[in-house]
Design a protein around this nucleic acid. Structure first.
Length: 723
RNA sequence: GGACGGUUAGCUCAGCGGUAGAGCGUUCGCUUCACACGCGAAAGGUCACAGGUUCAAUCCCUGUAUCGUCCACCA
């Protein structure tokens, strides 16, 4: 042995495993092999298997959440590829309308600039440049995490063909009567100057003062005295004996701006027990009051402008911000003897913008809405019939709960960064019309002059069409072969934002479900279960971690202990632990290779009974692991592999083999050599979807007959296939 | 206000109708010829609480407590 020249194999193995040197080189080999593209896969890969990547926002660096989805999806894709599927994983990048605009606005603020002082076209171009450079950056980070996705099919949410698909859907909704434009009360953010969907607002518990104000013959309780100038009615409960005599009459009221007359209406909506049982109705500034206003045909008088300031209808209060006005009005009411009492500990929930936490100002605006109820019905049907399955059933319940209570979807946003809404608005009658060809000159209704709708689509309206849009619906081969896709894997936090919308729009447009299985992962938290955030300084950067410990170690840390749908805790120590595992794999491989140098792999020796037993055990283990993967229990599969490799193979099997390898009996030695090699190569294969880099590297050194890349190697067993 | 989920070793979490498991951490001992990114050993849990079903419950049922998440128009 000693006088033998060390082969090339051994030179490589003499050095400790170096992920930094290895990973870039291996990824390049994969990419150049062309196997990321299913059309280049060897003959045996027939049945298609598809995952559409949730396109990361092209507005920053990848965070731990991205690393989770890359790891899980890459694991599934690599596993299916090894099983002989024509595996396709389509990458993408999201322009992420509002999200990106918020990020960019912060950047502008730092530079002392403001989007409101910029030409929209210039702003758009700047954000486009910003997004494009981030996109390239982000793509490289995905490569670093080992993503075996087909870059040749990469899509951006602002690609021309995507926009075309989105426009066609918009038109179809309009043709089918599922789209309407109307004055509705919307969630308005006074900072970002845009309306937001229900999902983009968060309800926060606040303690405010509840003011009891003398209001004609009544006393009303309100937290928003500043909206008093927009009141157009007073409401009581029809059963309330106290106020029966007033119902249907007009009452005269002394206000800070003089006497006014308001009708008194009766509606079930009013709770007799709350406050005084009398409600002032402000249709223009409260969603409930707006509904009442529609029901009783009340005028809506706007008194607050889009900046959250009182307008000219409020006399001396005009120009004041809501908070300032409220203070002053209360003072004045007190002076005028109209303030009855103040309940200072009134707890209620207030909607705020999910990005800036500013209180939402409900506001009446003309917006495009999608009627969601008919779409939701079909979506629920698909789930209850089992065409779509959620991994962990609990999400099914959550999904149904939301779907049953779904509200119409406001898809207009007043921001420049997004897909422009292809519609014309009439200057005269205010009506809106879908106009894909951009040829409408006159209002079809009143003949008035029309102008382009200045708004853009809610990002989720376009990304809700992502699965069929990226595959080139309706005519492309890809669409025909790879749609419906197999698995949608994404964060549970966007179940409603994205998954539910994809199901609704996917079924609506294509008539088929967009994916068969939904796998939702939880949030990555720090070791103290705190949300990671830049301000807390507890962010674990996947890029940094992969640099320090290797991508394989990071991936294992992200899989073990990560049960579907629950948040997971990630710590640097955990990642470090799996770097040790990578090292163990490397050293065990070294041991096996060094001890089989003289072995002739062409001749299978007779296997001794004790070794047969080991191989049987291995087969059982692989079967269990395969079963776990098929059932989306990746956390268990990874743990079993870790445990078996380290504590069975390395600690026991290798240790015991040492005596056999030193045995003078040729038969005993050869049986041990063959067995060790068989176990190692099987484990390397099985580990590949979890730890692709180190396994591919070791595979390239192993003297196996199969000289192809491990990424297209055969999975060790063929049964247990549930697809 | 409603819905959903959790409560198992110091920490993160598995598990399952038949007298408790893993990883990390801790303690002790090892320069053992693949590996100190290692090896060997050990300590540590009335499986939240109270009832019920059962020959048998951590596991099933009911209730309580507690934590968390999501949804929700009582001014």
């Amino acid at each position: 042995m000693s006088d033998e020249k060390p082969s090339q194999i051994n030179v490589k193995l003499l050095k400790p495993y170096n992920p930094k040197e290895t990973e870039g080189r291996i990824y390049k080999i994969w990419e150049e092999s062309g196997y990321f593209n299913p059309y280049n896969l060897p003959e045996r890969h027939k049945e298609p298997f598809t995952i559409i990547m949730p396109p990361p926002n092209a507005n920053g660096s990848l965070h731990a959440g991205h690393a989770v989805f890359v790891t899980i999806e890459d694991l599934i894709i690599r596993y299916k590829r090894m099983r002989g599927f024509r595996a396709l994983w389509v990458p993408g990048a999201d322009h992420a309308g509002f999200e990106t605009q918020v990020v960019y606005e912060k950047k502008l603020e730092k530079e002392g600039r403001s989007r409101f002082k910029m030409d929209p076209k210039e702003l758009y171009q700047e954000i486009m440049d910003f997004t494009q450079s981030n996109k390239a950056f982000m793509e490289n980070q995905l490569r670093g995490l080992g993503a075996s996705c087909d870059w040749s099919r990469e899509k951006f949410t602002l690609d021309a063909d995507i926009i075309e698909t989105v426009y066609k859907t918009f038109k179809k909704l309009s043709d089918d009567g599922l789209l309407y434009r109307g004055k509705r009360i919307v969630n308005w953010c006074t900072k970002h100057q845009t309306s937001l969907s229900e999902l983009e607002t968060t309800a926060e518990e606040k303690t405010d003062s509840l003011y009891y104000i003398k209001y004609g013959p009544f006393t009303v309780a309100t937290v928003r005295p500043e909206t008093i100038f927009g009141d157009t009615a007073i409401a009581v409960n029809p059963e309330d004996k106290r106020y029966k005599e007033f119902i249907g009459k007009e009452v005269e009221i002394d206000t800070l701006l003089g006497k006014i007359k308001l009708p008194v209406i009766a509606d079930e909506y009013v709770d007799k027990e709350f406050g005084t049982g009398v409600v002032k109705i402000t249709p223009a500034h409260d969603p409930n009051d707006f509904a009442i206003g529609l029901k009783y045909n009340l005028p809506a008088v706007e008194v607050i402008d889009k900046y959250g300031k009182l307008n000219e209808k409020t006399g001396k209060y005009a120009g004041l911000k809501v908070d300032e006005a409220r203070k002053l009005i209360i003072e004045d009411l007190e002076k005028a003897g109209l303030l009855v009492k103040i309940d200072e500990n009134y707890k209620h929930s207030v909607k705020s913008c999910y990005k800036c936490a500013k209180t939402i100002e409900p506001k009446i605006m003309d917006q495009w809405f999608v009627k969601t109820a008919p779409l939701a019905e079909k979506a629920m049907e698909a789930v209850s019939s089992g065409k779509i399955r959620f991994v962990t059933e609990k999400f099914e319940k959550i999904f149904f709960h939301w779907m049953k209570n779904i509200q119409d979807w406001n898809i207009s946003r007043q921001i420049v960064w997004g897909i422009p809404i292809p519609a014309k608005i009439c200057k005269k009658c205010g009506e809106g019309f879908v106009d894909l060809e951009d040829e409408m000159k006159k209002c079809p209704k009143c003949g008035g002059e029309v102008y382009d709708d200045p708004d853009t689509f809610d990002t989720w309206f376009s990304s809700g069409q992502w699965p069929f849009a990226v595959l080139g619906y309706p005519d492309s081969n890809d669409y025909k072969i790879y749609y419906p896709t197999d698995v949608m894997e994404t964060g549970s936090d966007i179940l409603f934002f994205w998954v539910a919308r994809m199901i609704m729009l996917g079924i609506y447009v294509t008539g088929e479900v967009p994916f068969k299985t939904v796998y939702l992962h939880g949030l990555v938290r720090d070791v103290n279960r705190q949300k990671m955030s830049k301000s807390k300084g507890n962010v674990i950067s996947p890029i940094e971690m992969s640099d320090k410990y290797g991508t394989d170690a990071l991936r294992m840390a992200l899989i073990v202990g990560n049960t579907p749908g629950s948040d997971m805790a990630l710590s640097e120590d955990k990642i470090k632990g799996y770097k040790h595992f990578a090292n163990k794999i490397w050293n065990a491989s070294r041991f096996v290779l060094e001890n089989t140098k003289d072995f002739d792999f062409e001749k299978k020796p007779e296997i001794l009974e004790k070794d047969k037993q080991l191989l049987d055990e291995l087969a059982g283990e692989i079967k269990a692991i395969t079963n776990d993967i098929e059932n989306y229990r990746f956390y268990l599969a990874a743990e079993k592999l870790y445990h078996y490799f380290w504590h069975n193979f390395a600690d026991i099997i290798i240790e015991k083999s040492k005596a056999c390898l030193a045995s003078p009996k040729k038969g005993e030695r050869e049986s041990a050599q063959w067995t060790l090699f068989e176990i190692l190569s099987t484990l390397i294969k099985t580990l590949h979807p979890f730890m692709p880099f180190i396994t591919e590297e070791i595979w390239s050194i192993l003297p196996t007959k199969d000289k192809n890349l491990l990424m297209v190697g055969n999975w060790p067993i063929q049964e247990e296939n549930n697809k």
